[in-house]
Design a protein around this nucleic acid. Structure first.
Length: 110
DNA sequence: ATTCTGACGTGGG
DNA sequence: CCCCACGCCAGAA
């Protein structure tokens, strides 16, 4: 029996469900977890997601579709490369057509 | 226990 | 749209 999943674990679970080529925001995940005010914690969780290779942290950006966490990836544009390899267009750290690619767990993951 | 931090979000100007 | 200030809360030291 799995013990009570911590906040981080939950974040990983949801993040791992983000479809290929889609993106979501820290706030959306936090909202889905029932803590809309804990968006920062989602980012913090991403910071600790280095142990979880299954967590596509590059598909999580801030509410503007800006790659604010790219500096936490190796190199200077690994995050962008990963996204572009999935067909996501990025210009100046800004995801193009962010609204179209946005994946809201609360709506899609009923 | 206390203090600080942060890959955010919102509201006001 | 931009900029600024504040709240938020789990984890680390």
């Amino acid at each position: 029996m799995v013990k009570d999943l911590g906040f981080f674990e939950k974040v990983y679970q949801v993040t791992a469900l983000i479809p290929y080529g889609r993106v979501t925001s820290y706030g959306a995940i936090a909202n889905y977890l029932g803590s809309p005010k804990s968006a920062r914690m989602v980012g913090w969780a991403m910071n600790a997601s280095h142990n979880n290779p299954d967590v596509p942290a590059h598909r999580v950006v801030n509410r503007k579709g800006l790659l604010t966490g790219k500096h936490h990836f190796e190199g200077t544009n690994l995050m962008q490369q990963l996204l572009e390899s999935e067909g996501v267009k990025i210009k100046e750290n800004q995801i193009q057509d962010f609204e179209k690619l946005f994946w809201d767990p609360q709506k899609e993951l009923i």
